[in-house]
Design a protein around this nucleic acid. Structure first.
Lengths: 212, 212, 212, 212
DNA sequence: AATGAATGAGCCTTCATTCAT
DNA sequence: GATGAATGAAGGCTCATTCAT
């Protein structure tokens, strides 16, 4: 699609994405970014102005690249509501668990989500909200009797089930030493979350449903 | 219990806990810790050796103090399994949502869980694992037909539903501007998570049902 | 006179004159000069070699342009010696107080005079010395009994009275908040300096009078 | 008076005064200041906070040290008004021409006067204004018929005659290669300025005195 | 038991300059 | 004739740490 002749600017964006995702904004150093990109230490200043401007650009770049793994778009093509939820969860989990080339996208987003930086507003507006609304639409179709507030909370429950495998991965690998988050395991976990959530959403508000 | 005459060492531990929880290990500065503790800048070196040693001590200190909000112990006193889960979730959420004085315990743990530091092994061994196993025991009681692996995944689902309100709080407050994580809302969310999970756990493997 | 089609080279000279006069040699940046001239950042290197060579050219350029405000030439046309001194002082003060478009000539000279740069020799030889000798000639006519050394010192006294309004302007505006160095005030100050100096020069060595 | 045991702080103040006076605020580097003071590069941060705070302290330090050469105080002890003016001018010139230990005081002040920095207000208020007012009082005694405005301008004329030997020293040494600003020459120049000014002040406004 | 002073490494940024087109 | 990209050297500042008392 794009020319493979990656210029310094592109290499800087890729290296910065990786480093920002690994170390966080404050802890990432321009020196390491430039070193990984094979560029001079002044290259960031020339191409982006300063560290913060580079970060903003990296966030935007991540959004552009992340579209190819958009859970909302993937889910839209599924047959029935349950399958749409399954595709949504699986795509989301694949992004989280991915370790390949564009691996830092999800990690960077998660980091920005946890510690509010200058780019969070933009991330939420164009990155998070559309997917969240797509998920809520799926939930409404699955159980039309849910109130708006309940839909919101169910969406949080589903996303939360996925995100723990990202935020708490170091803990989980220590708790369950046999756990390997490879593609097969990602698939199994996605299936678990889907069925767990389908059962819960279907049962929510069975009728009047106060707790016994 | 302890002498009220908090010496420099105790004041340093408290101040360090707060700062480490707020800023993270790398971003926290010895200067601010000493300033908050009203101690000299060399006090950390004198009492603990260096920054990392102080951090380890703070983690241990947090464990000693955190027992009073132990979800596992609270849940143990409940009547039936469903109520035990409810108490577990509520206590866990209260610790996460707490913003009061001894608040930094949970925040510090969550931070350590997200970014693997030197103290993570200890945190997992004596802080996380017991609670996780208590939760798994509750789940086994709720649905004895669950396999060990399923119990693990359900436990992750439940904890994940809780942790999202901590890890993604800045995003959630932007997604849902009316959301205020006060005590009443924490209670409502806890109830949602409990019922969501109870329904899911009860239905899990209703009739062998693995997907082909 | 010159072609109106100011090429990059001329625009660079003008912009550099302004910036050097405002910020001084060390503090002036090639970036700002090129930005003001609407030229690329490598233009200075291309047209002049480096920063110092540009500065030398700017000084020479200023000399070519500064002739139209030459105090010595203006004074030469006056009727009697006292009037010549008056015209000399007034022209000098007008150049110093000027804030208009081609204003940077005098400011640049004053700056070069205060901090000895590489171009000072040239500035003194072709810019300062002729005017100083013209002033000394006027003084000799006003009071032929003055020794060479006294003529030098009187010339310094007259030029010093003028230059303080340039070198210490920020201080003077703070000392005398009502002071506005507009054209009318420049005229009044010039008249004061002229009369102050005429009286002093006339009285100098009234009767041999060296102090014991 | 003070203990000769110069600590790092005092050595930094002295070195900074020298460097600031030589290079100006922007061009002075913390590295050179610390090098001259035999201190580590972080010493400025520790003792003064940052470069600007150090500069402010240096200005205040210069004021404290400069009191021993206060022209106004020296002049106050003279017998008659003319002698007071003579002492004022001589003391002022001695400060300007001085090359000894506390040499940078006057140079630093002159630099701050020429380029308005953050400390200029303070310099004017406590350093310049008292001396200027003392000079104006002397002038009023010398010629009571002078208006306030004329007194101001005569004061500027006198100070300007002195300051040129500081601001334009590089030019003067090129114009008059035999000029050596040693103690004897300072004395002769002071005498010239005094007599030049006395004659001018006495003649000012002889009666009605408009120019012919 | 505790402190003020001092250290050196490393951070981000800006600068004049050069290179390949 | 002129340009955008890239370079390496400082610059000010902050940090965790150590030393002498």
């Amino acid at each position: 699609m794009e020319p493979v002749d990656h210029g310094t600017r592109e290499r800087l964006l890729d290296a910065a994405g990786e480093v920002f995702a690994d170390r966080g904004y404050e802890q990432a150093t321009i020196r390491e970014i430039c070193r990984r990109a094979g560029a001079n230490i002044a290259a960031v200043s020339y191409h982006f102005g300063d560290k913060k401007a580079l970060y903003i650009e990296v966030i935007a770049y991540a959004h552009r690249c992340a579209d190819e793994y958009d859970p909302a778009r993937e889910a839209a093509g599924a047959a029935d509501p349950a399958e749409r939820l399954r595709v949504f969860v699986r795509t989301f989990m694949q992004r989280i668990g991915h370790k390949g080339r564009p691996a830092w996208h999800a990690r960077l987003m998660a980091r920005e989500m946890a510690s509010p930086g200058a780019a969070l507003d933009q991330v939420v507006r164009s990155g998070v909200r559309p997917k969240f609304e797509a998920l809520q639409a799926i939930l409404r179709t699955l159980n039309p009797s849910l109130s708006d507030r309940e839909v919101e909370r169910c969406a949080c429950s589903i996303v939360g089930q996925c995100l723990i495998y990202h935020h708490a991965r170091p803990v989980l690998t220590r708790l369950f030493p046999t756990l390997k988050l490879d593609a097969r395991e990602i698939e199994r976990i996605s299936e678990h979350i889907t069925r767990f959530s389908l059962a819960a959403v279907a049962r929510a508000h069975p009728r009047g449903g106060a707790r016994p």
